[in-house]
Design a binder for these strands. Structure first.
Length: 130
DNA sequence: TGTATGACCCTGA
DNA sequence: CTCAGGGCCATAC
């Protein structure tokens, strides 16, 4: 069985408690939840893209929202954010930045090769079949 | 209320 | 390969 609709409510509570719940994502947090869920579903040793995550979450054409969702994701979720890269497998963080190195390090740590700041297409997954 | 800014993407030149 | 232009849209100010 695929990992869908895992209850995130108990994990979202602390976010609300932090006072960040105010009608997020256009008065509906389901979009962010959906994105977080998809990111959680990216298998170890693989990577996907912002656009693909958005599509899999039922939000075609909204890659930016994926970026935003990761940006505001509560630490408690411990999302595998490093498995999300830009189109073509490119790490979007500025080359040389702390985040860029961190993402490359985490990816390599689970066997994903990072060459010239990008993940080979073979390691990418469309994850459209969730 | 309007403008600026992004962890983006795609097409075309 | 780079660059421009359009789409997308939540948040910050």
């Amino acid at each position: 069985m695929s990992p869908r609709k895992k209850p995130l409510g108990h994990l979202l509570r602390p976010l609300a408690a932090a006072g960040r719940d105010r009608r997020m994502a256009g008065g509906d947090s389901s979009a962010l939840e959906a994105i977080w869920q998809i990111v959680c579903a990216i298998p170890r040793g693989r990577a996907s893209t912002y656009g693909a995550v958005a599509r899999a979450a039922g939000l075609p054409g909204r890659a930016r929202l994926t970026g935003f969702a990761l940006r505001v994701a509560p630490e408690e979720l411990s999302l595998p954010w490093h498995r999300v890269v830009g189109a073509g497998g490119r790490i979007v963080f500025a080359s040389g930045s702390r985040e860029h190195r961190e993402q490359a390090r985490r990816l390599r740590a689970e066997g994903v090769p990072v060459v010239a700041g990008r993940v080979p297409k073979a390691a990418l997954t469309e994850l459209q079949e969730l």
